[in-house]
């Protein structure tokens, strides 16, 4: 299989470099600088953070080019940007702009309700969200070089990210104990290519780095998903919607490194104020969920 060809190795190679780190959502150069100074390993440029998208509604699109440029000119760490699901033209513009990674994201309003972007057609690597193993493998089959849990973006509630990382890890473990002849039925069940199902059964992990996103608001949230198997975290609204972005950003960076060390987590959490206001997902109407976008 050509998942390991040179282009693909370069794409997932950059994701390898981000492991153990925190990728922070930023909407302008000033926030990007705060993120970099706090130790972010990359920033994600977007027009509005997910909690504002949730509050204001309307169509959420790729960030304005001038903002992305301003962010790219300000920081030396990798700059990612979001494109709408299926909006390959936004992705082509982002590639021409030379962003380092493209997030085909359910946080933005989908442009295509049936098809995701053909990510193999790009030299710029893509990250995509997933709620379960089948979704992750379908995105990888399309060319995604990094997977992140969808969680529920902008909710400040970790419960969905936990559900998704647990589901993905559990479904991978289950494959490793099955016989070869059983994998064909698994491929059908997960609606994912057999060769990828076989790869996961053999290795017990995804063929690309597996990160977590969607609801991380505290250092303990970050450490929690990492102990559950995530290799790095994305933090969206959690930092710049809190009352102390600098401290919180630094604390989450420390938590992503020392996720197995409760004493260090305590130190990281010590001086934090109040986190962003969170939402009880159970009280959200189905139509307001972001995680159900894409398939």
């Amino acid at each position: 299989m050509n998942y390991l060809d040179d282009q693909f190795r370069l794409k997932s190679g950059l994701a390898e470099m981000l492991k153990g780190g925190v990728i922070m959502d930023v909407t302008n150069a000033e926030q990007a600088l705060i993120a970099e100074k706090a130790g972010a390993c990359a920033v994600m440029a977007l027009e509005r953070v997910p909690s504002d998208i949730r509050r204001d509604g309307g169509v959420a699109r790729m960030a304005p080019i001038s903002k992305i440029r301003e962010i790219m000119a300000t920081v030396s760490i990798p700059v990612m940007a979001k494109a709408r699901i299926g909006h390959f033209m936004e992705a082509q513009v982002l590639e021409a702009l030379k962003v380092d990674y493209i997030d085909e994201s359910e946080v933005l309003t989908p442009a295509d309700e049936e098809h995701h972007i053909d990510k193999r057609a790009f030299r710029t690597p893509f990250v995509c969200g997933a709620r379960n193993l089948g979704e992750a493998l379908r995105r990888i089959a399309e060319g995604a070089a990094m997977i992140r849990t969808k969680g529920e973006a902008g909710s400040g509630n970790i419960v969905e990210a936990v559900r998704h990382i647990r589901t993905i890890v559990k479904e991978m473990k289950q494959l490793t104990v099955l016989g070869k002849e059983e994998l064909v039925a698994e491929s059908k069940k997960h609606q994912a290519p057999l060769e990828l199902v076989q790869w996961v059964a053999e290795h017990g992990k995804l063929p690309v780095p597996n990160f977590s996103a969607g609801g991380i608001a505290t250092p303990a949230d970050a450490a929690l998903v990492m102990q559950l198997g995530a290799e790095a975290v994305f933090v969206g609204s959690g930092i710049f919607k809190s009352n102390d972005p600098e401290n919180r950003a630094r604390a989450i960076v420390k938590a992503a490194t020392y996720f197995n060390d409760p004493a260090k987590l305590l130190e990281a959490s010590e001086e934090l104020g109040i986190g962003m206001f969170g939402i009880d997902i159970a009280k959200l109407p189905e139509s307001e969920l972001l995680q159900t976008r894409g398939w």
């Binding site: 390898e16 470099m17 981000l18 492991k19 153990g20 780190g21 970099e36 706090a38 130790g39 972010a40 390993c41 990359a42 030396s76 760490i77 990798p78 960076v253 420390k254 490194t257």
Partner: peptide, 13 residues
């Protein structure tokens, strides 16, 4: 490999 800015901060911390 990774981000040298991030590593430097964590080393100092």
């Amino acid at each position: 490999g990774g981000e040298s800015t991030t590593m430097l901060k964590l080393l100092r911390l």
